[in-house]
Amino acid sequence: MVFMAGLDYFVCGSGHWPDVYDNNNNHNLLVCEAKTERSWLCFLVPGVRGGILSILEISNLSLSFGGVKALQDVSFRVPENTITTVIGPNGAGKTSLFNCISGFYKPQQGTIRYQGEVLAGVKPPARAAMGLARTFQNIALFRGMTVLDNIKLGAHVHMKSGLLSSLAYFGAARREEMAVRREVERHIIDFLEIDHIRRQPVASLSYGLQKRVELARALAMRPKVLMLDEPVAGMNREEKEDMARFILDIREEWDVTVLMVEHDMGMVMDISDHIAVLNFGQVITEGLPADVQNNPEVIKAYLGNSDMDSLRKKLNPQREVA
């Protein structure tokens, strides 16, 4: 054990899981680590929120479809109880990354660790049962069901009733359904303010409400990690603000880690604790919002070329002459 006097925290241990103790217990810490051969060196950054342990740890992930490399050697971590955002231009591989974590795509290389456990070989439904919940970029609600049933479906993995008791709808099956209904009503529908639409078929809802119902469904999965794929895409300003507030509240009240893909930079910078930037299937940088914002690599990835003047000259030579 190494004791570092004069600091508010100290680091001990070696191996995959750094044991970090916070002397004051009230600091928000972010762990940035550099990996050496078999141990972790940790730099603790005071003033930033987030747990010490990373709940999700992606290392050297590579995924390709035929010749197309969707992800190349992607590594980053999601510290527990943070809002971690993955940003990057379209086609950078963000959704592919989510699909790998969900277990829908099987990466050719690399590992995903969730709470210390390697996920390879775990089927998507089992991952859902372990607490990996998500929403989808292009809204994947079940159009043949009402809002309430969509949300209740999220609780599927936590229910047990079998076919026979379902056919009879008696005893255990009925009690379980009622318990789920109660939980969904009290904790989710109320919380997300969607009680007025619970009986409506999802197809009839506005885009913003559909996104909210998707979030509700993910919450019904009782997540430990909530993965949100573009939660505010296509929303108006007011809806965006609502959603941002919900995400912050969820992290606070439900004690979950949020992993998010989002394009809206205003929101990303406002609510994220930790950001990873992906471009062409690779992680360019990772860190605090402020750092990422000013990283020249990131600016280049988004704008193509940071030297705007030379770009303008190239495009409009005549005007230059005039």
Binding site: A140, D149, V180
Partner: peptide, 19 residues
């Protein structure tokens, strides 16, 4: 019950249902 919801979910979007 959850079984019927699972059936409908498979019909509407099988991949999302699995996830």
């Amino acid at each position: 019950t959850r079984i019927g919801r699972a059936f409908i979910a498979i019909r509407d979007r099988d991949i999302s249902a699995e996830i």
